[in-house]
């Protein structure tokens, strides 16, 4: 009885061991699929920006006279915001530029400070945020400058009409609305992948699972064959 129990247990254990690689493979496939969805670990780049260069500039930006741009993000992960400050061909060289991101209730969500020399003059400066936001809801970004000596930078903006980032709402200088104004800017997102993409990743995972399963199966078959050949040759001896 004991011997048969031991045999049964060793057979069961052998079955589990023989199935272990398959469990591992398909476990990994399942993890892969869950990471894609609903994990959202794979995201796609998307970008939205002002079109057409523009030569409108705000007045000089200081700590008391910041620039504030309303915007409504398109997707739920705002990777970066780019804006264009003008430093009068390098004449503005001192000071600290603060970029602040607020939600609709004016809660500060993110802040980054730059030394003036880090700010691109007349071209895009990108602020990496990687911030979770709610698509379609109102947010603000605010740019203010402190520690100035004499000269201050200006912000490039353009007209709201025509084509450009749909995200932008009102632009403010200090507490005043800049009529028909929209900051020259770029919004970079990491958006969730769509259904077709999820299914493409899932099917790739299943494909890899099947390939690995087949490889393990072939390897086991080869091993079994070798064992049988050994037994036969041993039997003959």
């Amino acid at each position: 009885m004991e011997l048969s129990m031991m045999n049964l247990k060793s057979t069961e254990s052998a079955k589990v061991n023989s199935r272990l690689p398959y469990f591992l493979i398909w476990g990994l496939v399942l993890v892969w699929m869950l990471l894609v969805w609903p994990g959202n670990m794979v995201r796609e780049d998307a970008s939205s920006r002002s079109i057409a260069d523009d030569d409108r500039k705000t007045d000089h930006i200081t700590q008391d006279l910041p620039v504030i741009q309303e915007f409504y993000p398109k997707y739920d992960r705002l990777y970066s915001v780019g804006f264009v400050l003008n430093r009068e061909e390098g004449a503005v060289s001192e000071g600290t530029v603060s970029f602040k991101l607020y939600d609709e209730q004016i809660h500060l969500l993110a802040q980054q400070d730059f030394l003036m020399e880090e700010i691109a003059d007349g071209s895009l400066t990108e602020v990496i945020l990687n911030q979770k936001v709610k698509a379609g809801e109102l947010y603000y970004f605010r740019i203010e400058v402190s520690g100035l000596l004499d000269k201050a930078p200006t912000l490039s903006y353009r007209s709201l009409s025509g084509c450009g980032p749909e995200e932008n709402g009102q632009l403010y200088f200090g507490s005043n609305v800049i009529e028909d104004g929209s900051a020259v800017c770029r919004y970079e997102y990491r958006k969730k992948v769509g259904l077709a993409q999820v299914l493409a990743y899932d099917s790739f995972g299943v494909l890899m699972g099947m390939v690995l399963t087949e490889m393990v199966r072939q390897w086991k078959k080869k091993k079994e064959l070798e064992v049988e050949m050994e037994k036969k040759s041993y039997g003959k001896k």
Partner: peptide, 22 residues
């Protein structure tokens, strides 16, 4: 490839085509 692998490859290719079409 073995039948199931071939079928899985066709499915992946189909969705790849959909994504590319988008």
């Amino acid at each position: 490839a073995e039948k199931k692998i071939y079928a899985a490859l066709l499915v992946f290719s189909f969705f790849l085509g959909v994504v590319d079409y988008e």
